[in-house]
């Protein structure tokens, strides 16, 4: 153990200077390092994250510049930038440590729907994105939920709350349909019905397990 004559304390660490005052230590007996060097691992992680961000920003800017000066008659660079933003969003969600697979699936699908609506808008807005892609995205999540329930059979009931969430999402195209924004009324209603049937099926077939899950989730 070394001694710091300025602080009047002994230092257990393997070091030549005092961690409190940076004064040089009087070297004594046995010293020890009792913690790992944590900085190295964190530096690498930060760099990987920044590299992806930099490459995306650079690619976006280059495309925008080429678009402006070479083909100013079209706005194709916006499509590239929107796709890059979606890619960045997905990288962020995948790299984010505390995002579970449910959050990843839902935000991945939601991001894709927004991107496709944007693509539709940039190419003259024919309406195919909200008329077809949006309702099919809801069906896609429904199918994903069924698959997840089958895979995670021990905890299938925990997806009931997501099924309720999807019913609420399913109401959005119906409202848009009533406002005249979506024109595929039959498709929208069928999708909503599928979502409701999926939930009711889970509750009825799930019996007590489903009931107890809903009691827990809705306890006041």
């Amino acid at each position: 153990m070394s001694k710091c004559r300025y602080c009047g304390v002994e230092i257990i660490d393997e070091t030549e200077h005092c961690p409190l005052c940076q004064g040089v230590l009087e070297q004594g007996g046995e010293c020890a390092t009792t913690y790992p060097n944590a900085v190295v691992g964190r530096r690498k992680l930060h760099f990987a994250f920044r590299l992806i961000l930099f490459l995306s920003v650079a690619a976006g800017l280059i495309c925008y510049a080429i678009n402006r000066y070479v083909t100013p008659e079209s706005n194709w660079s916006y499509i590239v930038i929107a796709s890059l933003l979606y890619g960045l969003w997905m990288v962020y969600i995948i790299m984010k440590d505390n995002a579970g697979y449910r959050v990843r699936i839902l935000s991945g699908v939601a991001g894709a729907v927004i991107l496709i609506i944007l693509l539709d808008a940039l190419t003259g807005f024919a309406g195919w994105s909200i008329n077809y892609v949006f309702p099919f995205a809801i069906v896609l999540v429904d199918v994903a939920l069924v698959i997840l329930m089958l895979i995670n059979r021990r905890n299938w009931q925990s997806y009931l709350i997501l099924q309720i969430f999807m019913i609420l999402v399913g109401i959005i195209p119906i409202v848009l349909c009533q406002k005249g924004i979506i024109t595929t009324g039959v498709l929208v209603n069928v999708v909503f019905l599928v979502t409701v049937i999926l939930f009711l099926g889970s509750v009825i077939l799930g019996g007590k397990t489903a009931k107890n899950e809903l009691v827990r989730r809705f306890h006041i």
Binding site: C7, G8, I11, D13, P19, T34, Y35, A38, V39
Partner: peptide, 13 residues
């Protein structure tokens, strides 16, 4: 009081 100090090494970086 006899004080003995141990750190996790960040102050030596």
């Amino acid at each position: 009081v006899d004080v003995k100090i141990e750190t996790n090494g960040v102050y030596y970086e």
